[in-house]
Design a protein around this nucleic acid. Structure first.
Lengths: 312, 312
DNA sequence: ATAGCTGCTGCCGAAACGGCATCAATATGT
DNA sequence: ACATATTGATGCCGTTTCGGCAGCAGCTAT
């Protein structure tokens, strides 16, 4: 089933590993074979594809162009393979997901479990990253589906869906704020606050709002793990900020209370985007999971926004 | 620059020609070489790609899937080539257009002439077909850009733009109807009418309206050429039907008069769609022309609908 | 029945591929 | 500063693959 010339497979491996010898190890061939294929390729294209640094290879501009083409080819080959297999009845493959941390508590495990229940032959690989890293992984062809904060995405990605969830304060059941319906940022800052570090995307959502506050609040606890943030809040250490997506189980068990943020009378939204490579047609099993993911997130968006109606 | 394995190039040629020996002639190789590559390919895929009829080869289902993949690969290779060339300053390639006849009088020649004036190295091939043939040519990878009546298009095509033009009656300057502002179908059928045959898309636009008329009009002249239709109308033979797009020159010279159709108080629209293959990223020069085409058609749409305001 | 087409298949020379050993250049560790 | 390790490139050589030639059988149209 590998009817494409070795050159492009070798090129692909070299681009990913950043070294000819490393690529050769992955491909189980001699490094000379890889070296030659790359040289031949450069001769065909008429331009160098890599810059030879002493420590390995990096793509030139033309190399990046070819990388895009090769990625398109190999990903479309995957789709073709899956099409053929689904024709012959078998239905297996691997769905590769890159997503931000707030999905790992409930959405993703629920979905993967239910999907695996129905299609045992479909396997998953998931990588948790920051929002911009998610988009980059997608661009580099290292993931099929990406879920990230809806930043401005590069043109080689397509936003398959956009769901917005209310951002809110998260406090322990016993916290003084816990009996309110909504809270303002100012009210939260009357208490110790658990801050997100800039590597978490909540930081970028809250920062402009915090900057508008009349007085800069005292430095509070800062963390870079949503899980840690959640557990700290559950222990009454302070007020954390999250969408309800990210606090599922502890919320269901009644330990945490979610209080929608009220910013001068209007809600604060956290936009979650689902992304795929724009130039790619997904394999059937991936497309199938993607649609489930979009449906599920839409369902949660509907439910949660109904539970906490807008402050008109 | 041909760094893809011979198999897929050979497969592509065989699919297009429908015969191994014919493909071999096109490729300038021995037919045995082609035959072997196809057999090897079928062994790799694990399923026959063609059905061997005594008179040549036709694709199997798996073959059609592979054909789609190969088309994606080769078209994306074209894009890559053009990307590299545009990086090195040179800018040439061929834009292949499939369109319906109503564009050939003014829109297309104007656009191509002006584009060639600016980019001498970009060449064009244009094929005039019926609307459904246009879409099929696009699907088969035989054209880059398609312009056709906006029918329901297959999922492998993407509608890059949709422009609507008013359908109208076209009569000679001296025709009794020529002094009206608008006409109804009934009014037209008081005179001899030049009908379009079913192979022209105007037929399918008018047929449902004609069917609603109280009495079936007498059989009139029937033609399958817009050019002929136009020239007949100019000679006063009867009333023809067209969008104004299709009668440019004769209208400018004052020989033909365009009368927007009035169907029970509302205009009759002819929807023109611009299509490209959905799974394809266009080369830079093609994309550039596509945008010009969309802009120009949008401009004409605006002008013409301003010249003949809606019958509110 | 003949002539012309189809795709397929031995045979063989030529080209491409891959493995091994080696080289020069550079980075790293002591 | 020196030794060591790692990088990509290259010459040599056996193996594999590719492609051309000629001929095969099967089918169709005349």
């Amino acid at each position: 089933m590998r009817f494409h010339s070795p050159s492009i497979q070798y090129f692909h491996a070299v681009r990913r590993t950043g070294s000819i010898r490393a690529a050769a190890r992955v491909l189980n061939v001699a490094s000379s074979a890889v070296s030659r294929q790359i040289l031949k390729l450069e001769q065909e294209v008429g331009s160098p594809l890599f810059e030879r640094n002493a420590r390995g290879l990096t793509l030139t501009t033309v190399g990046e162009m070819l990388a895009r083409h090769v990625m398109n080819v190999l990903q479309d080959l995957d789709r073709f393979r899956s099409d053929v297999q689904s024709l012959s009845g078998t239905w297996h493959g691997t769905v590769s997901i890159a997503c931000i941390e707030s999905l790992t508590e409930s959405v993703l495990p629920d979905l993967i479990a239910s999907h695996r229940g129905r299609a045992r032959r479909v396997s998953f690989t998931t990588e948790v990253k920051g929002s911009s890293d998610v988009l980059e992984a997608l661009s580099r062809g290292e993931a099929d589906i990406g879920i990230a904060m809806a930043l401005r995405h590069p043109p080689d990605l397509r936003q398959a869906a956009l769901k917005r969830f209310r951002l809110g304060a998260v406090v322990a059941r016993e916290h003084p704020l816990a009996r309110r319906k909504t809270v303002t940022l100012a009210q939260c800052f009357a208490f110790p606050v658990i801050h997100a570090l800039p590597e978490l995307s909540i930081y970028h959502l809250l920062q402009p709002l915090i900057a508008q506050l009349p007085e800069t609040p005292e430095p509070a606890i800062q963390v870079n793990s949503i899980d840690l943030m959640r557990e700290l809040a559950a222990r009454g250490v302070g007020v954390a900020f999250q969408t309800q997506l990210g606090i599922g189980r502890l919320s269901r068990e009644g330990q945490l209370v979610f209080l929608p943020l009220d910013n001068a009378g209007s809600p604060v939204w956290s936009d979650l985007g689902i992304y795929v490579r724009a130039e790619r047609t997904l394999p059937a099993y991936t497309e199938s999971f993607l649609q489930e993911l979009v449906r599920e997130l839409g369902e949660r968006e509907r439910r949660e926004n109904a539970a906490y109606p807008h402050v008109a």
